[in-house]
């Protein structure tokens, strides 16, 4: 695990995801302000920022949950219609910050729902149950089980989603998102609430996903996780992207340090209170934070 390097893909081909100037305004509040972002094939891009910076709102703009007030979102060079189900059909899948599984369906059924956009058997087909239907169902099941194996949930295929422990619920969300065979996967705080072992396993899972050819855009607060994984990281503060680049660029950026980067790695409560006015304290915090990350890294 420690030998895997995060490579920056420099491709001259058109980016997979091309976001230009996206702005989201709710009445008087500008949640996302003129953000540009590109994700290339097979890249893992991180999106960090303090709480309330607009990261999830940004995700929602990408997936059609919100219609951006300004700006364009292009996937594979096509502007996406602002309807979530069409975005998924086009090839972008996502997970949610607060887990949104189908609680009263089984694990397998959750993943089967994920396959909805890649199958087309409708009501008539279901009623008639011809050979085409049977084949499609068997195929879906096989693919779903494959995904469950991939995420390590195969043994619990018939368990109700809401009875899974927290970490496995997060994995199920990912499996479900993968079921739609996306080219780009949006992960919204996938390791929130996880312990270090689970976080480690999540890292491996994300690399394995990338190895399957899927690009990933991930929102996270766990710095070690982000910098282990991501080719590039963008920082969002109060709706604006203030810097984007590799680890050094981000970690050493003045504005980032000022605004945010004081979060301890293991989320010890009260250990960091990054405020813009107390720059001395911030410097100390940052030093600690940076030191921590170098110590425990690689």
């Amino acid at each position: 695990m420690t030998d895997v390097t995060t490579t920056t893909v420099t491709s001259t081909a058109a980016p997979l995801l091309d976001v230009r100037g996206v702005t989201m305004r709710f009445g008087g509040l500008t949640a996302v302000n003129n953000v540009d972002l590109t994700v290339g094939e097979g890249e893992i891009i991180g999106l960090i920022g303090p709480n309330g910076a607009g990261k999830t709102t940004f995700f929602n703009c990408l997936t059609g949950l919100y219609v951006p007030t300004e700006g364009t979102v292009k996937y594979r060079d096509k502007v996406l219609p602002p309807k979530p189900h069409l975005v998924t059909q086009a090839g972008i899948a996502r997970t949610f910050q607060n887990i949104r599984l189908f609680a009263n369906m089984t694990v397998l059924e959750n993943v089967l729902v994920g396959r909805h956009s890649r199958t087309k058997e409708g009501l008539i087909s279901a009623l008639v149950r011809g050979p085409g239907y049977r084949r499609a169902e068997a195929d879906s099941r096989a693919k779903a089980m494959d995904l469950l194996e991939f995420t390590g949930l195969a043994g619990k295929a018939d368990h109700l989603a809401r009875n899974l422990p927290y970490g496995e619920q997060r994995k199920l969300e990912i499996a479900r998102a993968l079921a739609s065979e996306p080219g780009l996967l949006l992960l919204d705080e996938p390791t929130a609430g996880m312990n270090p072992q689970e976080t480690r396993a999540a890292e491996e899972l994300v690399f394995a996903i990338r190895d399957r050819g899927i690009a990933i855009l991930v929102i996270e607060h766990d710095m070690r996780f982000i910098f282990n994984l991501c080719d590039r990281t963008a920082v969002l503060v109060q709706g604006q992207k203030i810097v984007e680049g590799d680890r050094e660029t981000v970690q050493n950026d003045e504005r980032v340090i000022t605004a945010y980067l004081g979060e301890p790695l293991e989320s010890v409560p009260g250990a960091s209170d990054s405020t813009a006015d107390d720059s001395t304290a911030d410097d100390n915090d940052t030093a600690d934070g940076a030191a921590d990350s170098t110590e425990n890294d690689e």
Partner: peptide, 24 residues
């Protein structure tokens, strides 16, 4: 069936169902 699962998914969480590609 596929559509039955879609129905139940909508009942459980329509936003998540749409994110899974279901035309709500």
């Amino acid at each position: 069936s596929r559509i039955g699962r879609a129905w139940i998914a909508i009942r459980e969480d329509e936003t998540a169902a749409e994110a899974m590609g279901i035309n709500g």
